[in-house]
Design a protein around this nucleic acid. Structure first.
Lengths: 151, 151
DNA sequence: GACCTTATTGCAACCAGTTGCAACAAACAT
DNA sequence: ATGTTTGTTGCAACTGGTTGCAATAAGGTC
């Protein structure tokens, strides 16, 4: 069974209706292996199904995210990026200063994930996480110019 | 020395100009102990300094965040919330289903923080983190209705 | 197949936040 | 004090995303 039909089945099993809009959005995401913005998804869907409103795209994406079929990631580019929820995941370290993005492995989160599960019964969506901070290059640069708290 | 003057000093030490706009924004945040939205900040600043544009507020907040004087948190309320960067921090577990927010202690992040520092030289802003996922109540509920992948 | 219920869509107005650019003013030098 | 430099602001237009509501259509029932 093609992947997106399997996903469509998850949708229906969860009690949601299958509309051509939703099916197209899901198919486009399943066909792509990278991140897609909502605008890209809208454009691609319209190639095969031109009757699509942007509200429907956003609403579909929110639903698919809620069902854990899709990941939403804000990499600080001013728009959210969407992709199929896959295993294993990776995460992103994003520098607030130089805007650089560095990919890191899922494994880094394993112990945190377990801890949240154990201590709080909370199932965290730690797949495809965006962590903001300062990369080692920018830290060195900042240390020079900052003479704070030395008075 | 009052707190916000100390913060003002950090601004100047980092090579930025001190404008009445920035000073007012910082003073308002330093005066409040909870989260403030940009709109609330704008309204409060205008009580003491009416000549303030919303762009200046957002630009000030971005700068203050970059200097680690302020935290920005997206708790899923549709707008970002701002507050003074304080120690020790806390974090939030936010349920995507019931939208419930649960506060957890900074300590949960300690080992992750150290690992990112050690392995990647990355200084993560893990203070005031928002972690989305599913709380234990909603997990139980979801397990019932989802018959996915059982075919 | 026709009917009914109610989830979903399209639309247009809206909201939070961003941007390009000309006008302005902090900080520094004279 | 005055002038110069250049970082910062105000403004208005814009962007990505959301919302309320009437119209539509998916999926179930007979």
């Amino acid at each position: 069974m093609p992947q997106h039909l399997e996903l469509v089945q998850s949708l229906r099993d969860a009690g949601h209706r299958l509309t051509p809009q939703r099916e197209s959005v899901l198919a486009v995401i399943a066909d792509s292996d990278g991140h897609l913005t909502a605008e890209e998804i809208l454009a691609r869907v319209r190639q095969r199904y031109p009757y699509l409103n942007k509200s429907a795209v956003y609403r579909s994406l929110d639903l698919l995210t809620e069902l854990s079929l899709v990941n939403q990631t804000d990499l600080g580019h001013g728009r959210v990026e969407y992709e199929l929820h896959r295993h294993p995941h990776h995460h992103h370290l994003i520098c607030r200063h130089c805007k650089g993005v560095q990919q890191i492995d899922q494994a880094v989160m394993n112990s945190l994930h377990k801890k949240l599960e154990k201590d709080f019964g909370f199932h965290a969506d730690l797949d495809h996480f965006a962590i903001f901070g300062t990369c080692h290059k920018c830290r060195a640069r900042a240390a020079k110019s900052a003479k704070r708290h030395t008075h």
